[in-house]
Design a protein around this nucleic acid. Sequence first.
DNA 1: GGGAGCCATACAATATCGTTATATCTGTTC
DNA 2: GAACAGATATAACGATATTGTATGGCTCCC
Lengths: 310, 310
Amino acid sequence: MELSQLRTLIHVAELGSLSKAADRIGIAQPALSRQIRMLEEELSVRLFTRHGRGMVLTEKGREILEHATRVMTELEEIRATAADLDAPLRGRIAIGFPPTVADILSLPLVAAFGKTHPQVELRLVGAYTGHLIDWLHRGEIDVAILYDPHVARSLRTEPLLLENLFLIGPPGSGLSADRSIPFSDLDLKRILLPSTRHGLRTIVEQCAVEAGITLHIAVEADSYATLKDLVRHGHGWTILPLSPIHDDIAAGRLLAAPLTDPAPVRQLVLSYPADRPVSRLTRFAGETIADIVADQVERKIWPGQLLRKA
Amino acid sequence: MELSQLRTLIHVAELGSLSKAADRIGIAQPALSRQIRMLEEELSVRLFTRHGRGMVLTEKGREILEHATRVMTELEEIRATAADLDAPLRGRIAIGFPPTVADILSLPLVAAFGKTHPQVELRLVGAYTGHLIDWLHRGEIDVAILYDPHVARSLRTEPLLLENLFLIGPPGSGLSADRSIPFSDLDLKRILLPSTRHGLRTIVEQCAVEAGITLHIAVEADSYATLKDLVRHGHGWTILPLSPIHDDIAAGRLLAAPLTDPAPVRQLVLSYPADRPVSRLTRFAGETIADIVADQVERKIWPGQLLRKA
DNA sequence: GGGAGCCATACAATATCGTTATATCTGTTC
DNA sequence: GAACAGATATAACGATATTGTATGGCTCCC
């Protein structure tokens, strides 16, 4: 048994494919095929069942995968132990956020690091979930907040928050935070949303189906700033989390109301790569983010439901 | 880092000598010297201090040795797991539920075990969360579904579900699943609830505070059957999850409507003791419960929001 | 002072790993 | 049903890593 085999097991298990794992790891597919075969021979078990299109863990494979993941965690602890434990954290860390989350978390996060670990060089990276996942795997970022992807086995995730989405309207639209709008009321309204590849769009469309209506999507725009501007100038209504428009609401430029029947929500998770050790710096960043999120929710700056750590 | 290096670290630490470790392992002494050197270079720490006759762990080396030992333990677990026979699970398992959950999960759970592991003896234990936590700690039950306790360090929990609570009224009350009732409408109604030690009561009272009203609690009863009967006979309204009254609603004996502003919800988690190993049987039970919960939510038998595993 | 025991380094030999080529199988599309 | 695409498995070969051998240098003991 070798560490490279265990790492391969983890990647293949997540992706369901030697070829995809080869792409990700940057090693030729036959080499991974042989690694898995040699591991299976050494253990005398089948870890995967093979199909025409990919391979799936057996039950035994799943059990062994858990231990393999723990081995990776212990290796991470070895590296953490090797690092200087008493000095203030130093070095650089890249933290990924969806754009809306960056707006609300950047300042408190920078403040927290500035207070306790001023020598750390922060790199705050805003991008969509798909890109963030890629960059986590490639080691270009160390930790990310993600809107909930289908859980990737090679990412270690901690649930953070269920975030409510709100109906956003212009001044004079009569929207109020303490009066919910039934989703079905959107039936004949001009709705402005991000494009179909955007997770928020998927959630909203699912809600429309549940409400039994068809949304009239007058404009698609992936930029929240654009959506906000269009709404401000009376070109329609949009559906967004409150975090990017908190200031606009406070200033009276936009109004918001909760939606119900159904209420659109999405889950945010903290994600780390599972096949690579998480440094003390990365761990500190994750803990700090979780603390800030809890604080924002408790102070009602960020409307949603905190999720407890497993 | 390689497993061979960690093994060498362990042997050299024990024997205090590369040469003695080389004899024991059957690898040439210079090879072991280089392995230790490469490990030290990779971690940027000194693991050993060298003397004329042998070498001794540094303090840092001792800390890292602990993790290396744990890696070996996990590898042993992998081998032990691989060596397990693929016999059907057998033995006994005690599974705890809050009473409302037992109603909805017992039959499918028994069916699932009957299909795949018929020799397992199931013990399904219905009790309130406080008791279930006690029994988990004492080992009287192996796994439980709990309404979200403040996380006990000695329990390992996996979030399952956010369950919506509904306003329950008698036939003729006009309640409908597709028309939400603002919580503030409960202001002057006769409300029937469980006692103050019941978690549901706490949630409902928190919602009342948020809605700015005071509930008129006409009757306290911890038995849901009693609450249902009282509502059926027009003695008031109650607030419950749908799971225990699904059949009553289907039969027209009771009506239900969602509440909003705020919407009362509670989180269910799967809980295992953290200080005791979880058997394959227990793990299978937990996975099966999670699958059944997902199925019930997707089929809208159980209204709520699935939470993804961490 | 000499010998024994030990660690570290250089270089050669050997083993392992990754790549390329290709066969085979399964699933999808037309 | 045939053709094509996507995937895994194997063989062969070159590249790279690891181990073995030879040996130097240091410390400790007699």
